Simulated scan of single mutants.
Amino acid sequence: MSTDAAAPVRDPAWSLSRSAIGLWITEGVLGTLLYGALVAAFVLFVPVGGPVPVLRWVLPALVAVYAVVAIGIRPWFRHRVHRWEVTAEAVYTLTGWLTRTWTLVPVSRIQTVDVTRGVLQQLFGLATVAVLTASSQGTVRVWHLEADVAARVADDLARRAELVRDEAT
């Protein structure tokens, strides 16, 4: 049996931070406000006898459905299905709430590790770890970790990737 055997395909062990739920709810509220403003402008400024009068009630109904999904359903479901894990051999991620994407990045393939914090992530104390490789898939991201966890993960991965490179030379 080879010691280079591929890691088994399995769900990664860790969930994202629970603060990610608040971030996704905030994104849903902001999106709803944006779509609501666009629909309100349409309803207010398009004549009542306009070309498609049914849009005057269909568009607000669609914004309401969007709000229910984006604020009340999607954040909780995404938190249940998004997973990540870092082992001695690889970084695993499982993302997507409709289309599931399972990714494994061997530590030996890591070229760069970055930590980024968007404006909303900063408000919620979160950060994203980006693992860059030479593969055609490019960058793998572990979204919405607690900022201190993200910093520790990035530091650990960068050190281990450097050790693997040093051993290979």
Rank of each mutant, 00 (worst) to 15 (best):
L145F: 01
A6H: 06
G125C: 02
V113L: 02
V58G: 07
R159T: 12
W57A: 08
H82K: 04
V43Y: 02
R56C: 05
T99Q: 12
L44T: 14
V48G: 04
R100T: 15
V129I: 06
L126A: 03
F45H: 13
A40Y: 12
L157C: 07
L104V: 15
Q122H: 10
W14L: 12
V48M: 10
G72T: 09
R152G: 08
A20D: 06
R109V: 07
T139R: 12
L126D: 04
V149C: 00
L16Q: 14
R159H: 08
P53S: 06
F77R: 15
T133H: 05
T101W: 10
G72I: 09
R78S: 14
V107K: 04
V129K: 03
L30W: 01
H144S: 14
S15K: 12
T133P: 03
P75W: 09
V105C: 03
T99Y: 00
R160C: 06
L38N: 01
V46R: 10
Q111A: 07
W57F: 11
I21T: 11
S17F: 04
V119N: 01
A168M: 11
D4H: 13
A20K: 10
T101C: 07
P60V: 10
L30R: 01
S15L: 14
R83I: 09
A37E: 07
A151K: 12
T26H: 03
F124L: 05
L55A: 13
L98H: 10
R165F: 07
S136H: 07
V63N: 04
L33K: 03
S108M: 02
T87N: 05
T26R: 01
G22Q: 05
A64P: 05
T101P: 00
A130Y: 05
G49F: 08
V129L: 01
H79N: 14
P47N: 11
W76R: 14
Y92S: 08
T169K: 10
T3P: 00
D11P: 13
D156C: 03
R78Y: 04
W24P: 00
F42C: 07
I25T: 12
P53G: 02
A7P: 10
V142T: 09
A147S: 10
L120R: 09
G49A: 13
I25R: 15
A20L: 07
W97T: 08
R74C: 07
V131W: 01
R78E: 06
P51S: 15
V140N: 06
D156A: 14
I110L: 01
F77D: 00
A150Y: 02
W57M: 03
W143V: 14
D4I: 10
L44I: 14
A90E: 15
V129M: 04
R18K: 13
L126V: 06
